[in-house]
Amino acid sequence: MTDEYRESGEAVDSVLTALADPMRRRLLELLAAQGEATATTLAQPLPVSRQAVVKHLGVLDAAGLVSAGRVGREVRYRVRPAALDATARWMAALATDWDRRLANIKRIAEAAERDARSTRSD
């Protein structure tokens, strides 16, 4: 396994782990809609505390899904799409690979069925 593949795989793992939590997905949705927001603003429509939001944002930040920037006394968060894009590319490649494998299985099964029919008709 190459270092590049390992790093890419680790990044995808981190993104998928972060996105496994519905609250973190909701936070990403809110940030995408608002463009930029503080933890306090994000917590307002949610059934969790500001502190919980900050913890979730920390996981999203560690996965490369959001970035934080200080503006005066506030910390503002925004979505970083690169990690999502890399994960989407990985998922698309995986889907393509599975489509190829399933097509091969279908061809083998169809050939076996044709062979079985020709053997029966002899």
Rank of each mutant, 00 (worst) to 15 (best):
T2K: 09
T2F: 00
D3P: 06
Y5M: 08
R6Y: 08
R6V: 11
V12R: 03
V12W: 00
D13A: 14
S14E: 10
M23N: 10
R24I: 07
L28D: 11
L31V: 02
L31K: 00
L31S: 00
L31M: 02
A32Y: 10
A32W: 06
A33Q: 14
Q34N: 07
Q34W: 14
G35Y: 11
E36Y: 08
A37R: 01
A39L: 01
A39P: 05
T40R: 11
L42N: 03
Q44L: 12
L46F: 00
L46H: 00
S49G: 15
R50F: 03
A52D: 15
A52W: 05
H56D: 06
G58I: 06
V59P: 08
D61G: 10
A62L: 06
V66M: 00
A68H: 05
R70Y: 04
G72P: 04
E74W: 01
E74C: 08
V75T: 10
R76W: 03
R76T: 12
R80N: 15
R80V: 13
R80C: 15
R80Q: 15
R80G: 13
P81A: 04
A83H: 04
D85T: 14
A88M: 06
R89N: 06
R89A: 15
M91V: 09
M91Q: 14
A93L: 09
A93N: 04
L94E: 12
A95S: 11
A95L: 02
D97E: 12
D99A: 15
R100A: 14
R101Q: 11
N104F: 05
R107A: 15
A116Y: 02
S118E: 15
T119G: 12
T119R: 14
D122Y: 07
